[in-house]
Nucleic acid binder design. Structure first.
Lengths: 237, 237
DNA sequence: TTGCATAACTTGTATATACAAGTTATGCTA
DNA sequence: TAGCATAACTTGTATATACAAGTTATGCAA
């Protein structure tokens, strides 16, 4: 069976996105939704919980569920499209250029972060992202070849995650991320259009599959004026 | 009644933090936990869901709940202690210095972001954060005086959120945040120890209460070498 | 011994019920 | 009219049951 609460979530999320239900308004009550979708209240509540987690609504005990302001987020540009990292100026032209795709044997730092045996085959993928024709984001990805053997430049230029899910049936589950500012290296200056910028915003992330195996490690360097990160954080407990 | 699933969450989270249950191990099954806590399976599942959301465990259908690696996060330094923003070098000495606390009437930009009438009384709070004696973080907070009338310099130097929750019974619910890099202004250079740094990491955040009223707007400027942001993101759906 | 069906686990989804707790409108009482 | 108890909503928590779906160990059969 297709998951019912997911379907209800999708439907309500769409109604909020398309402003069929506007910010500030109340959703129909849980009992009304239960009747409308011919289901149980618990199932409705699971859908509402997802909406709350993702910033669509705020639940108010005794009152109802208020629709929150939807700040139209720009399209994601970095590799982690499924998550919250976003880059500015998405109204501009975006290009992805695969500058290198090679298979290496794991050792040293990369072996350590990918937690694999020395000599394990890994893909090393370099991608240059252009905004408005300027090369301002430089990504280096490292991923286990065993899990995604069929990577090609075409796939890399498109979306690795789509390939993962649709072709291999694998699914990203969670990621750990770190954002810092570092000095630009000689390599960065040679490859990117840095102008007079001497520092870069560096996003390092580890991406895990559902069985907790580390699938990918990414280092993404952004020219500071083109970096933007937005976050919606809900307090737990 | 005190919330049962919350209590179970707290207990299990503590056992993971103190490594009574180590990373890689499985938690007791839901049925075992149900028996151990003399409750229902649904209640246990709510506790496990919270653990999963906060990065403590990963649930595996058919197998169990694996405890994930706990990267010991440094203590939070910024105003949003309850959320995920963190700053580096917390092993060093941290000082907060209130440089200004004044009551103003809302107008212009601040009136706009706080979504209030022109002339509404607001607190404007400036705090300088020192790490190892260096002034490297500069926070400007704007908050509605009506909601927190009794702010003093002592409270501001400690934690405004503790005051909110413990004295006023108000509770932070969620926040929207933006991280960008901007040029340092003359004021920043005068107040902070910037050395040769010309750019700052700027974190702008809007903090909301449970009834969706905007309570606080904060602009936090970080010297780039002292900025660090870590994030655990789980894929929804 | 090897292979395979199966049983016995695990978590995932859906339903039903009951009561607690917070909010709002109703309508009676003074 | 003004004030207040109350009824009728809302969401929050807890429990019980049933079956689906994925994993692992058991044990029989060849």
């Amino acid at each position: 069976m297709e998951k019912k609460f997911q379907a209800i979530y999708d439907l309500l999320a769409k109604e909020i996105q398309t402003e069929k239900i506007k910010a500030g308004q109340l959703l129909p009550s849980e009992n009304e939704l239960t009747e409308r979708f011919a289901t149980s209240r618990e199932t409705v509540r699971k859908a509402l919980q997802l909406l709350s987690q993702n910033g669509y609504i705020q639940k108010l005990q005794g009152k109802g569920s208020v629709v929150l302001e939807q700040d139209k987020l720009p399209l994601p540009v970095s590799g982690l499209t499924s998550f919250k990292e976003l880059s500015r100026s998405m109204s501009q032209k975006v290009e992805t250029c695969v500058t290198s795709l090679s298979c290496k044997k794991a050792r040293g730092f990369i072996q350590q972060v990918l937690q694999c045996e020395e000599g394990t085959p890994i893909w090393e993928l370099h991608r240059l992202r252009k905004l408005d024709g300027e090369s301002v984001i430089y990504d280096k990805d490292f991923l286990l070849k065993e899990l995604a053997p069929g990577i090609t430049e075409e796939i890399a230029a498109d979306s690795i995650y789509d390939y993962l899910e649709q072709e291999l049936g694998l699914s990203i589950s969670y990621a750990k991320k770190e954002v810092v500012v570092e000095e630009a290296q000689a390599e960065d200056k040679a490859i990117m259009d840095l102008g007079s910028y001497q520092q870069l915003v560096v996003v390092r992330s580890a991406v895990y599959l559902e069985d907790t195996t580390l699938f990918q490690y990414t280092e993404s360097k952004h020219r500071p004026d083109k970096f933007r990160f937005v976050d919606f954080a809900r307090r737990t407990k």
